[in-house]
Amino acid sequence: MKKLSLICFSISSLFAWSQKVGVKTTSPTETLDINGSLRVRGINLTGTTALKDRIMVFENDGVVKYVTSSAIIRQMPLGFFGLNTASNLVGNGKVANPLGIASLSANTNQALGWDGTKWLPVDQLSSSNWLFVGNSNTTSTNLLGTINDISMSVRSNNTTMLQFGKRNTLNLYDSSNTGLYPYNQQDNSVSYIRGTNGNSSLQFESSTSQSYKPVFFTTSDGNFGFRGSSAGNDWFEVSSSGSSNNGSLQFTIGDNGDEPIIFRKYNKSTDTFVEMMRMQGLGLNNLVRVGINMQGNVANSTLQINGSVTKKVDVINADTTFTEFQHTVFINNSSSITVTLPTASTCKGRIYILKKLSSGTVNITSFVNRNSSNSNVLSAGVTQLQSDGSNWQQIN
């Protein structure tokens, strides 16, 4: 005990006599300069006293100093901060909850983006893009498409099936002087269905259709049409036909041959329909009947008209060559004239009705009169002529 007291007294006296003490060094530079390691056997824990933002560190020359935690963070590379924790970063970024990240004015469904200088709120992809699983937060201002003059393309198997855009943007604009509407409207809005080798179609759902689902279609011959079901099992079609600049327009109705093609009008005041014309086959044969004003009934002849018939009437007094534009002709000439009929073989079945009103001579193309003799002069009264394909025959 005396030895220990002496040592303590000696050290105390040494601290009192010198401002710098060196251990294993003869030239101390600090109050206590240890040329070797330092070990502390016990450290008192802090009690209720508020913590100080101080950390003990060693400088490069071994000097022990206090520094603030923020001073250490400032010396780290820009944009990096190491944090080891098993907890998620939560909170609002305030001092009372320091693990949080402040909102920086970001709204719901917004993220933070770096603009090269600072973090700013940006729209998240899930709130501004269309999702494969669908969008539930769309508004009236949202859109699917382009916001510049570029076509929008819908693909399948990486092949364009549908395009949207202005006609000029889609290269569908006809700038020639003979361009028809709407092909000559460069700003015309177009929904363009693409095809393969000229073939494309637009089909509609129809669960009750048996075989003929409603469809618009094109063909490799340059024809277009639409087909659909009728009464489930029957079908109809309106389409163009032909090839090499030899086209036609076809109306088709069918299955067992007696389905009619009906033209009708609508009366809004009585909410009723009135049939105007009916074209109808008679089974699987070549027989067809057409009726006008039939009120839903099938015509009893090839052509049945429930109403009046008007045919063209002409009056002549000079030489005249007949064509398909004459039917009933009144001849009132004072001097001799000549009437020339078309060649009978070119208009088989055509009928002319001629009535001579004057005493002037009317020379006419040879026809077979009622007595089965050839005649070249028109008699007074009414003469009805019809071509049999070889000759003009008087039939009255």
Rank of each mutant, 00 (worst) to 15 (best):
L4N: 07
S5N: 02
I7N: 08
F9W: 09
Q19C: 01
Q19W: 12
K20Q: 15
V21Y: 02
G22I: 00
T25M: 05
T29L: 13
D33S: 15
L38G: 03
R39T: 08
G42Q: 07
N44E: 14
N44F: 08
T49S: 12
L51K: 11
D53S: 04
V57L: 06
V63C: 07
V64N: 06
V67A: 03
L78E: 11
L78Y: 02
N88C: 12
V90M: 14
G91P: 12
L99P: 15
S103F: 12
A106T: 04
Q110R: 06
A111H: 07
W114D: 02
G116T: 07
T117E: 01
K118Q: 15
Q124F: 11
S126N: 09
S128K: 14
S128W: 13
L131G: 02
S136G: 10
T138K: 09
T138A: 06
G145H: 06
N148D: 12
N148H: 06
I150L: 11
S153D: 13
S156E: 15
T159R: 07
M161V: 09
Q163N: 15
R167P: 04
N168Y: 06
N168G: 07
L170I: 01
L172V: 04
L180S: 14
Y181I: 00
P182R: 00
N184K: 04
Q185T: 03
D187G: 04
N188C: 14
V190S: 09
S191M: 10
Y192W: 12
G195S: 05
T196F: 01
N197A: 15
N199D: 03
S200Q: 12
F204H: 06
S207K: 09
Y212M: 03
Y212N: 05
P214N: 02
V215T: 14
F217T: 05
S220E: 15
S220M: 14
G222R: 02
A231I: 09
N233L: 02
N233V: 01
V238M: 12
S240G: 11
G242F: 14
N245T: 09
L249W: 08
Q250E: 10
D255Y: 12
G257I: 00
I261E: 07
I261H: 05
I261S: 04
I261C: 09
T270P: 01
T272S: 08
M276E: 13
M279Q: 10
Q280H: 07
L284K: 13
V288M: 03
M294P: 00
Q295H: 13
Q295R: 02
G296N: 01
N300A: 09
S301D: 03
T302Q: 08
S308K: 13
V309R: 08
K311V: 12
K311R: 12
V313G: 08
D314N: 05
I316F: 05
D319N: 10
T323K: 09
F325V: 08
S334T: 11
T338Y: 06
P342C: 04
A344K: 01
I351W: 06
K355L: 13
L357H: 07
G360M: 04
T361V: 05
V362W: 03
N363P: 00
N363V: 04
T365G: 01
F367Q: 03
V368W: 02
N369W: 02
N369Y: 01
R370V: 07
N376S: 14
V377I: 15
A380Q: 10
V382L: 00
T383W: 05
L385A: 02
S390G: 03
W392S: 01
Q394D: 04
